[in-house]
């Protein structure tokens, strides 16, 4: 893959776009595309594993919470390749915003073990695994998570 300048994107930047149905299971399409791309960029195995987990969590959140399992809604995944980093942006079409407190909370392991519902670790995991994470509102109104993983040569 070369990294020449292209129309509509910044120098040395290439974009792959995936539009997925809001159906659990299809997060694997994004995981495999991201891992295949990261491997070709030169990321190490443990970083690729971290990326796959983060992408899976972000897309699953978009399907479950943002799009509320509405299969007619799409989850849009943008994979932006730069010389020294991979940026993954996951956007849903949901009208329900993610609660700010939920985005920034740190789960308590002992409390979580007492509860029947063991969910709610996704955003914390994404923050732990990626180098940069930002939650915003997409221009179209959905929720957007932007994750960056740096390539250490």
């Amino acid at each position: 893959m070369s990294n020449e300048e292209t129309a509509g994107s910044k120098p040395s930047e290439k974009v792959i776009e995936l539009r997925l149905p809001s159906r659990l299971g299809y997060e694997r399409v994004a995981m495999d595309a991201a891992s295949s791309l990261a491997r070709r960029m030169g990321f190490e195995g443990d970083r690729i594993a971290a990326l796959k987990t983060a992408v899976s969590e972000a897309v699953t959140n978009a399907i479950e919470h943002g799009n509320q399992h509405n299969e007619t809604m799409k989850v849009v995944v943008l994979l932006t390749v730069r010389d020294d980093e991979l940026i993954v942006s996951v956007t849903d079409q949901g009208s329900k915003s993610i609660d700010e407190a939920y985005v920034s909370r740190v789960p308590n392991i002992s409390e979580a073990m007492q509860k029947d519902d063991k969910g709610g670790w996704g955003i914390w995991l994404i923050r732990e695994l990626m180098d940069e994470v930002e939650f915003t509102k997409a221009p179209g109104g959905g929720n957007q998570v932007r994750m960056v993983i740096h390539l250490e040569r």
Binding site: E17, R19, L20, R23, Y26, A33, N70, E71, T72
Partner: peptide, 11 residues
């Protein structure tokens, strides 16, 4: 939950 018979992916 809204389901659809046709699954579409775009790349």
């Amino acid at each position: 939950m809204t389901t659809t018979r046709q699954h579409i992916i775009e790349i």
